[in-house]
């Protein structure tokens, strides 16, 4: 599977521009990018995304990344380039979910680009394409319905009791739903199918 191939001339042109646009991100002409321009513009307005303007594609993030070390197709520098180029293949790229959010890249980045945060926003973008592991969807549903990532069982409560640990009550899930209602997350979660399937074997 090679989702990383880009039109080379476009790439060279844009890399050239990027190198010389460290502080001020140049506006790529709409004809040079695919349709995810809106996402890219949105990311560049976010507090974390703004840091992407400082990226000069040095690749130190990739050099520091433990996942890149064991899988060469995982390349944070290239992911950032795709965000900047508004390359739509990123939203469907399952590799973004193998980012650990360990922040090793960010620690080593000379420009302190918020790389893991930007990849998180790319994951959010991928939800529409179903690019979300089943476990992540299930967990999100449980958080909304239970106020916790797990279903609390009677034996669990009994164990706490026996250990003399205080009761924690039941989370105020109605209040949670009220606070979140404008985001439409419940509806989204009802309709999304994960492209990962039940279990993924490689």
């Amino acid at each position: 599977m090679n989702t990383d191939s880009l039109d080379t001339s476009r790439l060279m042109r844009n890399q050239f521009k990027l190198r010389f646009a460290k502080c001020e991100l140049i506006d790529l002409t709409p004809s040079s990018v695919s349709s995810d321009l809106e996402f890219r513009n949105w990311i560049l307005r976010q507090p974390e995304g703004k840091t992407l303007r400082r990226c000069y594609q040095c690749g130190r993030c990739t050099g520091a990344c433990p996942i890149a070390e064991i899988d060469q197709s995982f390349n944070p520098r290239l992911f950032l380039e795709k965000v900047i180029l508004a390359d739509e293949s990123l939203a469907e790229n399952q590799l973004i979910w193998t980012c650990l959010t360990c922040e090793q890249c960010e620690v080593r980045c000379p420009e302190h680009v918020k790389i893991p945060q930007i990849l998180i926003l790319a994951k959010v973008r991928g939800l529409v394409a179903g690019n979300t592991p089943q476990t992540a969807l299930d967990r999100a549903r449980t958080i909304l319905s239970e106020g916790r990532t797990i279903q609390v069982s009677d034996p669990m409560l009994k164990t706490r009791d026996k250990m003399g640990l205080p009761s924690l009550g039941s989370p105020p899930v109605k209040q949670l739903a009220e606070a979140l209602k404008d985001l439409g997350l419940v509806e989204k979660l009802e309709n999304i199918e994960s492209i990962y399937g039940g279990d993924r074997d490689e």
Binding site: I120, V124, L137, A140, L185
Partner: peptide, 9 residues
């Protein structure tokens, strides 16, 4: 994982 489902939530 929840961050990557809905960061705003």
């Amino acid at each position: 994982t929840f961050t990557g489902v809905d960061y705003e939530a």
